[in-house]
Nucleic acid binder design. Structure first.
Lengths: 394, 394
DNA sequence: CTGAAAGCGCTTACAG
DNA sequence: CTGAAAGCGCTTACAG
């Protein structure tokens, strides 16, 4: 931890001016290759790392990206953040953490956003599930501030956006149950004010329709994404007259599936023998719970990665990055970005439950939306068509 | 989002020099109260927020604190981070996230630390469970860099450190089982290379000793903190001859307790009827699993808070904060800091299983160590002494 | 292709 | 108690 070196030191060592050092730092084209090489070498030799703070001040752009995180209690958040961190770790950017739960910063969410902006710290923002503050994020975007939304509960217009293909995931879940021979399949929806809940419901309907099974309104209940909601919805469903009672439940979230499990146990129903169950999310607990839960895995970490890549590419338009010669590998944008305006209705697809993504060409200046595919994780909670008893697991 | 205001703007509006504005910004004493008031008002009126980047550059100290996070997969991390974020939200500090799992930044952990330092971004560092990189953190501290360790698996010498009182927690867990009438209580230890595992073992031993129950080596097995380890340890314990078999197990972590649950189920043993079970951590899943797990809750969020407060007070020595008049409430150090060099052996304490903390006076310039108390969370996995069947729960 | 100089927004001695 | 000036480490026109 010797005295921090500055570009002046490097300049002196290389026998050039600070301006030239700055040029190679910023990958400006007009530098003599030999000079560039020499400077690069020296920087590496002495372990030079430029001051983020100084270049931020001078250049007017920062090397920090913000990540706006809602309640930490939600189990998916850490995974998303991890994805972001992985991508950021390969770049010159650092991550600044903003917690939107923070009541102390002001009465309304707008204050947090204002604070983030006025502090002039970050170059761009990743907003995880902004929910209530979604409109502030949209405003940010309209003001030209680089921002990417991750898995928001709505699809704001003209907004860089990364989320999961909830429709196909739900289709797959339902299809799995159909494949096992179930015909009376209930669905506990998430709150319908969320886009993802509506998309999952749509996937459920589509799968039933393809199997020529009419939708039974008695088998569809709106829940709250929580254990409690799953519990009470399950009670309603499982106390239906025997001929109406579902043989399988597709819960709109793993949390609600846990509630179903509890209610089933309370009613003396065995899972999967008496009731097959599929969740959605693949939360950490779902592999641990008894029986282990078959569910639709959302690629949270990948969502974070893709969102970070998208933000970085947005930032690209105004700045450059370092090259491989430099201690930090440069950021390379993802080889391909699946881009679409909305997940397609797969009803014409011969194998719609495969996790392929719509692959349209990106229209210029269209808002970028990335829908990541989910995947079916088969565990014990659905049993199998062939055996009456579930195989032991975990 | 009008043009960003600078202290020059404020100075002009207030009819003073930039230096004076800077003084009130930094709470320097020598400012005329009336002038200070006026400047404060103006800053509030126009919503002035100083540039972190500029004051960092000029002042040589930053308003950013780093948080070094290990694998995000560990369920306790988010809670700790939340605690840190809550405290930071009340201050002028922002949080910069560093992920130590990041392989791309270099081969060894030291690189990440070097990077953190050389980038000259943050004023201080919070290291969550540094584990492998612990020695780099110690080096940082020796070099005079403000750093606080959170719940590391060792107690490095002379280091600001925040953790849980594992000894008392384990004592309480074992005591709870003893209270329910159990006499053959097994313990699945965490890896003994971790201090917390040894402390928990010590608490277990102490409780047994006070109950005049000799330690049975056959009932103590070292595990790995994971589900798998709990599973195999439980198998060893539960297949012991009937007269040797434990009637209760104290698992050193909730994860291992889940493993016990799985093994018990596989062996046809009911929990709590045939086996009482206590965990340690109070992980999210523990309330959801069947039966809900009685466990020792670690105050993760509070650990984050206390660590952040400690770091901030360390930072205080070199800088000041804003006052309440200013948009950001000032940081106030915790009213009391429980400080001790090591958790006391409570054997002389009449009610050692209460969550009181050792309360020594702090010796000047001693390393600050904060041990937070754990708490017993009683759920269904221990049943009760009086009834043979467990009450339904969740 | 390269350098001298001004400037980013703040802080900090140094005078007064 | 307050101001003028230098400086933090970088970037960016502007010349050459």
């Amino acid at each position: 931890m010797a005295r921090k070196r500055t570009i002046a030191d490097i300049a002196q060592l290389a026998g050039v001016s600070k301006a030239t050092v700055s040029r190679v730092l910023n990958h400006k084209p007009d530098v003599d290759p030999a000079t560039r090489e020499r400077i690069l070498r020296i920087m590496e030799d002495v372990g030079f790392v430029p001051s983020i703070t100084a270049s931020g001040l001078a250049g007017g752009r920062s090397r920090l990206i913000g990540i706006l995180v809602p309640a930490f209690t939600w189990p998916l958040i850490p995974d998303i953040v991890r994805g972001v961190a992985e991508v950021a770790g390969n770049t010159i950017y650092e991550i600044v953490l903003y917690s939107i739960n923070d009541k102390t910063r002001g009465d309304n969410k707008g204050d947090v956003i204002d604070h983030i902006l006025s502090t002039n710290l970050i170059a761009g923002l990743l907003a995880i599930l902004p929910g209530q503050s979604s409109r502030y994020i949209v405003r940010l975007h309209q003001l030209g501030f680089p921002v990417v939304m991750i898995d928001d509960q709505a699809l704001p217009p003209a907004m860089p956006w990364v989320g999961a293909d909830n429709y196909t995931g739900a289709y797959e879940a339902t299809h799995h149950l159909l494949n096992l021979g179930h015909r009376r399949i209930a669905h506990i929806q998430g709150p319908l004010r969320y886009l993802c809940s509506r998309e999952r419901y749509r996937g459920y309907c589509q799968a039933l329709q393809e199997a020529a099974i009419p939708l039974d309104p008695a088998l569809v209940i709106e829940g709250d994404f929580e254990v409690a909601g799953g519990q009470s919805a399950a009670y309603t469903l499982l106390t239906l007259p025997p001929e109406q009672r579902p043989t399988a439940i597709f819960a709109g979230s793993d949390g609600m599936a846990y509630g179903v499990l509890a209610t089933a146990a309370a009613l003396g129903l065995r899972v999967p023998e008496d009731l097959a169950l599929v969740g959605f999310d693949d939360t950490y607990s779902s592999a641990i719970i008894q029986p282990p839960l078959t569910t639709i895995k959302q690629p949270f970490s990948e969502m974070g990665q893709r969102a970070a890549e998208l933000l970085l590419s947005l930032l690209d338009k105004a700045s450059q990055q370092f090259s491989g010669t430099y201690p930090y590998p440069s950021f390379r944008r993802a080889a391909t970005l699946e881009v679409a305006r909305e997940p397609e209705n797969h009803s014409d697809d011969p194998r719609p439950y495969e996790t392929t993504l719509p692959d349209h060409e990106r229209e210029n200046d269209e808002p970028i939306r990335i829908f990541l595919s989910t995947s079916l994780i088969v565990r014990a909670s659905c049993g199998s068509k062939l055996r009456a008893t579930a195989p032991p697991s975990l």
